[in-house]
Write a protein that binds this DNA or RNA. Sequence first.
DNA 1: TCTAATGTTAACGTTTGGTTAAACCTAATT
DNA 2: AATTAGGTTTAACCAAACGTTAACATTAGA
Lengths: 235, 235
Amino acid sequence: MEEQNKKILLVEDDPNFGTVLKDYLMMNDYDVVHAKNGMEGFEKFKKDDYDLCILDVMMPYKDGFTLAKEIREKNTEVPIIFLTAKAMKEDVLKGYKVGADDYLNKPFDSEVLLMKIKAIMQRKATDTVADSKQFEFKIGRFDLNSKLRFLKFDGGEPTKLSPKENELLRLLALHENDLMPRELALTKIWRDDNYFTSRSMDVYIAKLRKYLKPDTNVEILNIHGEGFRLVVNNQ
Amino acid sequence: MEEQNKKILLVEDDPNFGTVLKDYLMMNDYDVVHAKNGMEGFEKFKKDDYDLCILDVMMPYKDGFTLAKEIREKNTEVPIIFLTAKAMKEDVLKGYKVGADDYLNKPFDSEVLLMKIKAIMQRKATDTVADSKQFEFKIGRFDLNSKLRFLKFDGGEPTKLSPKENELLRLLALHENDLMPRELALTKIWRDDNYFTSRSMDVYIAKLRKYLKPDTNVEILNIHGEGFRLVVNNQ
DNA sequence: TCTAATGTTAACGTTTGGTTAAACCTAATT
DNA sequence: AATTAGGTTTAACCAAACGTTAACATTAGA
């Protein structure tokens, strides 16, 4: 079977730089769609599936961060790389809680970009192929359907789960009987790691514990300073 | 089994440009029929089945939008790509709610066109092969005939459905007991995804729920932020 | 014993969905 | 040309769902 080229959405308003970059990427066997501004970028994003988005931050009408946020609403998985100005400080970037996979200061070495792209694709290949298909879990006497977002106890009436409840429980289930690091949930689900999101996560842990109460053999344990552990006592 | 070439209807009044484009597409293994104006385009469209239509917007006698509308009346599925003048604004295009799959500004990069075509064909290939032939559904005690657009309860008098009601219920039925994503309905039926079409869809969901009331085992559930689910409780 | 981490509940603001009715549009009819 | 009817969209209002934050309580571990 023929390997399909990876598809990249490149949003860059500088026509010269954009074209050069596009050509360079295409020379390296990527399919590249080039949008000239944030608006157009979002339109193109909606029209197709991409393996990676490369967004310039400084753009007229709609900056890269705003665009990234819109993209995230549609798709929580697709990797995003920001092209930023040299001057921008780390903390400014962190302020925009978007969940980028990488930042790159302009001007940058195209070799570096290529390596980053490869690394990101690799990462995605290993951690989503196996994961993404897993939507159903048996947790003690519960059945979690993560696609339809419900939790059934003993095959009875399903309880609806909110998106966050669902993702958190799914992540715990993926690590059943093992440590699910706090940080993992925060970066994967909240896409940010600070005091407040951490507290928010605790709130969701409390909610999940309530849901799981009916089965006394199932519990969510805390590992102080590390994370949580979904334990299922067999028998 | 021999793979059949995809068939493209190209409607373009500029003879030079049209011929060049036709040749280019044929070189890339598409079967292309070239019509020189809207009138002729519609004649050819009626005479055959096409996998894609590429329509120039600016044409004498019958412009591309008008032609597209006529095509849509005959066929709600076939993808349409418009070739537009550079000057045309997004919102002008949006005004013509025809349901295009893409727009392309002239002059354009032929590579881009080719990629768009591939993407569109791909999309169609994955989501209609199995679906498109199914027009009759049993939904609990209801029978939906999607071709004739009626809904029968217990084999009694059929209720007539409007086109939108019909397509929406059909799409739900195709995903019975599974998630039918909001976005899917919006892009497939409304061919646009914005606040208002989304609200319009909600209105139709309400209408369908009313129709389905007689059978208490049938319901349309909402999955917050995701879409809807047509559930049939067996027994 | 003292501090940082966690548990829990409730309040709040925001987004999304449910529903109804009016406005709008188009094609057919008068 | 005006009217009507069917279909669809838009508007408005309300309710439900969600996520975050604050506040206070409890616990773990240095």
